[in-house]
Simulated scan of single mutants.
Amino acid sequence: MPASDSRIDHEMNASPLPPENTAGLRQQVLDWFVRRQRESWSTAEEQALQQWLAADAAHRAAYVQWEQHWRAIDAMPADAIAQLRRNLAHDKALPSATAAAAPTPRPAAAASAPAPAAALPALRRRWLLPSLGMAAAIVMTSGTGLLAWQHWQAQPVFKQAYASQRGQQLQVQLPDGSELRLDTATRLEVAYYRDRREVLLHEGQALFSVQAAPQRPFHVLSGPVGITVVGTRFSVRFTPGLAGSDGVRVAVEEGKVRVVRRDGAPGPALAQLPEAQTLVAGQQISANPEGGLSPIQAVAAEGIAAWREHRISFVNTPLAQALAEFERYGSTGLTISDPAVAALRLSGTFDPSDIQTLRKVLPHALPVRLQQVAGGLEIRALR
């Protein structure tokens, strides 16, 4: 092992990183450490740092640990630094799920790297890439540090996809105590990062009960809309394939949420987007498929996520659209071929799983009859 490698491994073993339960302190140390390396670092900032270090012995101890690790990295030979750059770039290109599940494979170019770089993967790379010690590399003048920092920040600490089947509801508890309830035919992905929590709702509707964490906001990204909360309970619906209901609907049961047109912006960028609307309990808002937001409207408590109680309601809704909503929960065995019948308006509250009642009600609520045809019943105009 080269002498520089021995020194690095010795310092890493001699000065362990702060334990996982000091994430808040670790973040403060990294913030001070990064800012101190900038050319714009001022005397006033240095004084503020010294005051922070003097305020608590734990502050100084943690900061000294990071400085020790920095000196270890600073001792790396140039070829090892170059190899680290290649490894980080390679790791960043890999899917995050793969990077989180297993040690990242070395790119093919590593096979021909000089001896000092070849020695890098063992202890040092395990420290630099998946561990928090990698963040100490952010101040490398070569630029490798910025790549390392971005790579570290971009890795989710928790990631999971959830889906409910047609006619099924699904209850999910997340690591922080937040809860999700998925309605029928709903697909979403949850990813928790170090600075935020994020849910991508692909389709369907869900009720969110979010545990408050002001330093780690909770974002729901759904079609053209982004919703940001700290702690609250609200529902989001996004059914892009359903004519007449292909936008996004957000309704708040408790707390408040911020709704914006995101145009593809990721969670961290939502706070900077203009034209945000803030909803409080008892309010709802809708967005069209392009992200245009409607005026805020009042909504009764029983109208928020009524599907929890196996209820769907229609108010002057085209019959074809109402039938499509029923079909989200299961086959109705009903069809419509006449455009005039499809345009008839239906109002009422129904149990989406009780198709027999729907069949009985339709001829009394609308001027229609049910005609037996191959494969089921057709709703036809009453003549």
Rank of each mutant, 00 (worst) to 15 (best):
A3E: 14
D5H: 15
S6L: 15
E11F: 06
P16N: 09
P19R: 05
E20V: 11
T22S: 07
L25C: 09
Q27N: 14
R35H: 08
R35T: 05
R36P: 02
R38C: 06
T43P: 00
Q50A: 15
W52L: 12
A55M: 09
A61S: 15
Q65T: 15
Q68P: 01
A72P: 05
I73A: 14
D74V: 10
A75D: 12
A78G: 07
Q83P: 00
N87Q: 10
D91N: 10
K92Q: 14
L94R: 08
A100G: 12
A109W: 12
A110N: 05
A110R: 01
A111D: 11
S112V: 08
P116C: 12
A117F: 06
A118C: 03
L120G: 00
P121I: 13
A122F: 11
W127C: 07
L132K: 07
T141Q: 15
S142H: 06
G145P: 02
G145W: 03
A148F: 07
A148Y: 04
Q150R: 13
W152A: 08
W152Q: 03
A154C: 08
A154V: 06
A154M: 08
F158I: 02
K159N: 05
K159A: 14
Y162I: 02
A163L: 07
Q171W: 03
L174D: 01
D176P: 01
A185E: 10
V199L: 15
L200T: 14
L201F: 01
H202E: 15
G204I: 04
Q205Y: 03
Q205R: 14
S209V: 04
Q211I: 12
A212H: 13
P217W: 11
F218A: 00
V220A: 03
S222W: 03
V225S: 03
G226M: 12
T232H: 00
S235E: 14
G241K: 10
V248G: 04
V248W: 00
K256Y: 09
D263L: 10
D263Y: 09
G267S: 10
G267T: 09
P268A: 13
A269L: 13
L270R: 02
Q272A: 13
Q272M: 07
P274I: 10
A281E: 05
N288M: 12
N288L: 08
P289H: 09
P289G: 13
E290L: 14
A301S: 15
A301Q: 13
E302P: 00
R311I: 04
P318T: 04
P318H: 08
A320M: 10
A324L: 06
G330P: 02
T332P: 12
T335P: 05
P339A: 09
S347G: 08
S347H: 12
S347F: 10
I355V: 15
T357G: 04
R359F: 02
V361T: 14
P363D: 08
H364D: 12
L366T: 05
P367G: 09
P367A: 09
V368S: 13
V368D: 10
R369I: 08
R369C: 11
R369F: 03
Q371A: 14
G376I: 07
E378C: 05
I379H: 11
